[in-house]
Amino acid sequence: MINMISRLGQSVIYNCEQAGYLTLFLLRALGRMFSWPIKLGPIIKQLHFIGAKSTFVIVTASLTIGLVLGLQLYYELNKFGAVDRLGTVVALSMIREMGPVVTALMVIGRAGSAMCAEVGIMRTDEQLDALECMAIDPYRFLMVPKFWATIISLPLLVAISDVVGILGGYVAGVWIFDVPSGAYFYGMYSSVDWVDINMGLVKSFVFGLIIVWISTGKGFLLHLDREGSYGAEGVSRITTQAVVLASISVLVADYLISAFMI
């Protein structure tokens, strides 16, 4: 019994410590994001990796989700004779919820895991120590480009996701079920407000920050992991942790932002 309590205590202390280290990591990285000079080259390279290369998965995922939304909602709306509202409902779901969340989850899977593994390997391989020893700030050299690139990419990817999702709904509704094309777009035009777009925008910024923070932070702090940081096993463990933690954080943040902004 005492053993159990002691273990619980240890676990609480450990998790608080980790949360503290992660917070410090975030503050340091954010502080350096705005310190001059900001080098564009590395940011563009990361934009290519995190943003441009994620476009294909996000287009595919969003198209599928738009199609499914169109399909499912058509049957429900048809019961009430309100199929002309299909465009509105698909657009609002995409812009407010599905677009940001799907994009975030896809970016976590594709770029977040890669960033975490990359930084983690740099930690076990003493590359981060080597940077320190060359008097090169690892935050400025490695983290700042990733932070800028993720925070810039996410809103753009979300915008693409929204448009593609709405087109998916159009394909399902107009091409398959013969909903009038004009009704699909007119409903959208009259009911989607700036508030909705803003909500999507705020979400995408926050999600971007969460993704890059947790992915790089977990890798950066690998040497402080309770289970040890040895080699491939350590890197694979923290990458899993980072993906799970980032995904859950994104979903929790999604709820909180929706609750505050609705």
Partner: peptide
């Protein structure tokens, strides 16, 4: 540390940079 050089056990070269880019890194940064 600008006046100190360190060679690590595993080399700690950056995998995304070529050999000469690795060597040039301190010069470019400082």
């Amino acid at each position: 540390r600008r006046n100190i050089g360190v060679a690590f056990q595993g080399g700690a070269l950056f995998g995304s940079m070529s050999l000469i880019e690795n060597v040039q890194l301190p010069l470019r940064e400082h």
